[in-house]
Nucleic acid binder design. Structure first.
Lengths: 208, 208
DNA sequence: GTCTATAGCGGGATAGAC
DNA sequence: GTCTATCCCGCTATAGAC
């Protein structure tokens, strides 16, 4: 891994190209030559910057997940009123997926592959932090008497996260089905859905 | 496609083995020889029963989707009170995924691959019917004054379906994260989540 | 750091015996 | 219907010139 000189945006070019191809086609369906072509770089160069194809794949995942703001989980703890914290988490999630459109596809693939056994630890640990932050948040809401106590905080957290996750994974198909070009990519439409998720989730949680 | 003689459970064996491998690894990462091994059948036989690998893949999808009860969408129309209809749809969805555990993974992969461009038409049309049935259902609930009218019926339908879909797609990972072996496969645990989804969704929809 | 050439392997698919 | 043998191709990865 060479120093980040100017010349080594070759490395970046490879990473960028690979991210797109891996997200769209998966690891095995993507060839070295394809990556080289997409990056505008000699395919053999890949082996100068990375040990092999698998290492490149790991690097791609790592890089995307690192950009993935840790703030997501932090936000869940920081915001004062519980309902604001939940809203913040959902909108932050939308923000992340908007700025990193490849992430949901890559994650979906990782989840589906190999019983998630090889699902990058980085994904697993992130998901775990996020899920337990949300679970705690909901518990707190219950203790304060704001939320109904019959709901399982853990299941409710899954319900909350599932909505946006699925929205983005099924994105391309949803656009066809709903017959609305861009609903899962245009910031306005996405935030409208995120806002819906917030309201829907809070309505599902709050005392009547 | 030979007559369904006794001898042709060879064909079935191939389909079964292929379904598992495709769901877990995808089309390209699964080799002919692997399928043969898993099916306990000579790999070359694959070409006696199917034109090529792609044709086998289509056959696998077709077969799984056909087992997928059309009743799912019908149920949405048939049940009398709106809330019962929603409950019926969600539990039916759980039932289908339980009896066809490969389906969600296969669907997730189809969605992630190739911008869903080649997402089997059969998936698309099914999803469309289900989604619009649910949307109509929710609209009806609003007209009857049972549901809040600020909610977009279409978005709410997405929220409702997303929960179980995501639950099953992320299943293997969720089991690791929640540290609960089997939550996404054992009928009891699954129906408990389905029941949660029903209550959560109705709470999100109903007037306070 | 970048490029060419190529080794070497494993994949899909077919021919043809049984 | 099943099996063996094999062709051919394209892929990953490397060696080595520049």
């Amino acid at each position: 891994m060479p120093a980040p000189t100017l010349a080594s945006d070759t490395r970046t070019a490879i990473l960028d190209a690979a991210a797109g191809l891996f997200a769209r086609q998966g690891l095995d369906s993507t060839t070295i030559k394809e990556i080289g072509r997409a990056a505008g770089v000699n395919p053999a160069l890949l082996y100068y910057y990375f040990a092999d194809k698998a290492a490149l794949y790991e690097a791609v995942l790592e890089r995307l997940m690192t950009r993935f703001p840790d703030r997501l989980a932090e936000v869940a703890v920081r915001e004062a009123p519980v309902r604001d914290a939940i809203a913040a988490v959902v909108h932050m999630q939308a923000e992340v997926f908007l700025s990193e459109p490849l992430l949901p596809r890559l994650m979906a693939r990782e989840l589906a592959d190999h019983e998630a056994r090889r699902a990058a630890p980085v994904i697993r640990s992130h998901a775990h932090r996020l899920l337990s932050a949300l679970t705690n948040l909901i518990s707190r809401g219950q203790q304060r008497g704001e939320f109904r106590s019959e709901v399982s905080p853990e299941l409710a957290a899954v319900s909350c996260l599932a909505q946006l996750n699925w929205f983005f994974i099924a994105g391309p198909a949803l656009e066809l089905i709903l017959n609305r070009e861009g609903v899962t990519r245009e910031p306005d439409a996405v935030h409208r859905f995120a806002q819906h998720v917030v309201e829907f989730t809070l309505a599902g949680l709050e005392r009547r």
